[in-house]
Design a protein around this nucleic acid. Sequence first.
DNA 1: ATTGTTCTGTTCGATACCGAACACAGTCGG
DNA 2: CCGACTGTGTTCGGTATCGAACAGAACAAT
Lengths: 238, 238
Amino acid sequence: MAQHRDEPEIENRFLLALPDSCLKRLKPHLEYLEMRPRDVLIRNGDTMEHVYFFNRGLASLVKTMRDGRMVEIGVVGVTGAVGLFSLLGVERSAWESVVQAPGNALRISRSALQAEMARSHVLQDLVRRRAGLFLSELAQTAACNRLHSLEQRCCRWLLMAHDSAGTDSFPLTHEFLALMLGVQRSGLSIVAGALQRDGCIRYTRGRVNIVDRAGLEAGSCECYGTVRAECDHLFGKD
Amino acid sequence: MAQHRDEPEIENRFLLALPDSCLKRLKPHLEYLEMRPRDVLIRNGDTMEHVYFFNRGLASLVKTMRDGRMVEIGVVGVTGAVGLFSLLGVERSAWESVVQAPGNALRISRSALQAEMARSHVLQDLVRRRAGLFLSELAQTAACNRLHSLEQRCCRWLLMAHDSAGTDSFPLTHEFLALMLGVQRSGLSIVAGALQRDGCIRYTRGRVNIVDRAGLEAGSCECYGTVRAECDHLFGKD
DNA sequence: ATTGTTCTGTTCGATACCGAACACAGTCGG
DNA sequence: CCGACTGTGTTCGGTATCGAACAGAACAAT
């Protein structure tokens, strides 16, 4: 998962929100990495030595129980950073961060970023705001997991993935999505089939195509809109 | 909910973990408050101006949907602090913090506490560690809400409440517990009735009595033990 | 004592999802 | 071209929980 470049292109919206001067000082510390599905960035309990800014692609934050059952408790895409809370002094990760959608990211050591935070008030402020947004997302997901149906959560998930994918088509199997949503694959296949019949999505062996976003939004719970609105408020509408 | 004392007794374990010198400087800023069930400490979206350290009693962190359905996404008792993340620079609360079990708390302004953090490395470190623990709790609950049965979550909840209550008997209605767990009251009554028949608890009109902790632990999901172990690791086993 | 309110017990049909299984089709490696 | 594997469609009985309703019991206010 390592591939180096001298002058990586920056598309991550968190980084892009920083002033040029700040970004310029960070650039020498940024390491360009290809992100491949199933790459594990941070394990549960790991000390967080690096922060990852996705330019493209998406990471899943996953909690696994002792019996092996797992469920996604959050995602991090182009508006966020994997390992964000390490910047607020939290040592260890309480979940596993694993690449879900392929793409690339810029990695920087926690210490380098904290050094810049000590200097840049803007960066410090952005980290805090983004952390607040993340907390909100996490709480929303906790409630969503309890209150909303599989179909609603499935639609929400597809919308979030679509936002981060950048393209209408991206790799995704029923099996994987069922794992993330913490449900049986058979149940998910039925929901996915219904969404396909309704013309919201189309899929073929491990690849899904978002056809009708509005349809998905109608089928989704309010959680997508709530989180999206907060994110737009922080980074602007586009 | 306001009742003042000059030299409040400190039982909150977060505060007790601080060195005397640090505590001594904080004391003049600590305001003693009675906590009554349903008192709202922080609303969703509020800026967090104060931090609350419970000596006794328990706060529920609650997320409410637009249709009025709600679910508890976490609790804060004698080992934590309501408004903790404000100390890491997060401005606004993403949920509502409401008193669940009666007791009393010490309140301090965010600014006073941050001033002391700037001085005390130990306090700063403890805040970060406790925040990390809270994140872990939140993630655990998000997963628990998806993966575990009502009975398991009910047992877990009773155990957590028991830990914070300090006594074996505390006020609790089926209605309230169903709200917190995000389920129907009728379903909860059946589970509660079963637990009573099994001799784990006894209850009468709005009051529950913990009879057999071991039984509850057996009926609970692993989430209770996982979170409890992390908490013990941070504060010691008692 | 009477009345109103809160809390609990219980029923009942409806629904969502589980958990396991099997079939089949597309894809890949040799 | 031939397996082997992976991804999807579908079934089926079982269970958990919903959502709504009603009744009775304990308590509080008057």
